[in-house]
Simulated assay, not measured.
Amino acid sequence: MTSSNDAGAPSARTLVKRYRHLAHYDRETIDAILDAMPVAHIAYLHEGQPIVTPTLQWREGDRVYWHGAAKGRMMRATEGADVCLTVSILDGLVLARSAFNFNVNHRSAMLFGKAEAVTDPKEKIRLLTRLVNGFAPDQWDKLRPATESEITATAILSLKIEEASAKVRSGPPEDNESDYAHPVWAGVLPIRLTVGAPEPDPRNSPGVAAPDLSGYSIG
């Protein structure tokens, strides 16, 4: 995968074998899923045990970034190690005429590679600024300045988007032809994540305004 418009050949790890017609290997699809959902799950081995940890992710160009406590298990176990990062978006419940044809409409992406640490303090601050401002535009400059100890205690890892695949399903149920005459309701129950009105902290200073989140959306 060399650019957001080029399709990449699947690897042995990313080749979709089940429901192959839902598979996508192009960067445009994969990037769109990563950009739409900030919650990711990182799978890795720790002391011989499989672990999956949820975290926040964000993408810049050909890399996905996530952060955590520098002394935390995930950050210590994954730096320089092989990881699997997944992002999933649930778009609807698909109710069919047979229980065995129930499904979900969804968008999901799976990435493999070695996690690389960001060690330069200035780059860490830039990336953390990007994370905060991704939720609330220009919010970083309004916050209490980060301390050196806070920056040191925070680790940022990244994964280059080289080995990745996506699966996307949409549309109505796919029933057996003989089941379409069965008299039961079938269809899709749409599911959407929505951003509600800001709920202020009761200890806010008088007169402070909520950030403008009118353009922020998830999914």
Rank of each mutant, 00 (worst) to 15 (best):
Y216R: 10
H41W: 05
A69T: 11
S205N: 01
L193R: 11
N103L: 05
R76Q: 15
E177T: 13
T78H: 03
E199M: 10
H21D: 15
G207I: 08
D120N: 13
W58P: 01
L213V: 13
G113H: 08
P190T: 06
R73W: 00
V208P: 06
V132G: 01
P121Q: 10
H46I: 00
A69K: 07
E199S: 13
M75P: 09
S11P: 09
S4W: 03
R97T: 01
I125N: 02
F112T: 02
A186M: 00
A146T: 09
L131M: 14
V83I: 15
M75W: 07
R73E: 15
A96C: 05
G215N: 09
Q57M: 08
F135T: 02
A117R: 15
L213D: 01
H182L: 15
D212F: 11
F102T: 00
P172N: 04
P38Q: 03
A99P: 12
L131W: 07
E123S: 08
A32G: 09
I151R: 10
W66F: 15
K167L: 04
A166H: 11
V39Q: 02
Y216N: 00
R27M: 08
E60S: 14
E123F: 05
T194D: 11
A69P: 05
Y180K: 13
S205C: 00
M75I: 11
E116F: 01
S178C: 00
D212E: 08
R107E: 02
A77C: 05
E79V: 14
L93H: 10
R130H: 13
F112M: 05
A115R: 03
E148W: 00
R63W: 14
L157M: 12
M110V: 15
T29A: 01
A9S: 14
P10G: 11
K114F: 02
F100T: 12
F102K: 00
G113Y: 04
E163M: 08
G8H: 07
H24V: 00
V52G: 06
T2D: 10
A117F: 04
L90E: 12
N176K: 13
L193Y: 07
H41V: 06
P206C: 09
A136H: 01
T152M: 04
P172A: 11
R107C: 09
P173H: 08
H106K: 01
A7V: 14
V184P: 06
D91Q: 08
A164F: 08
D138E: 15
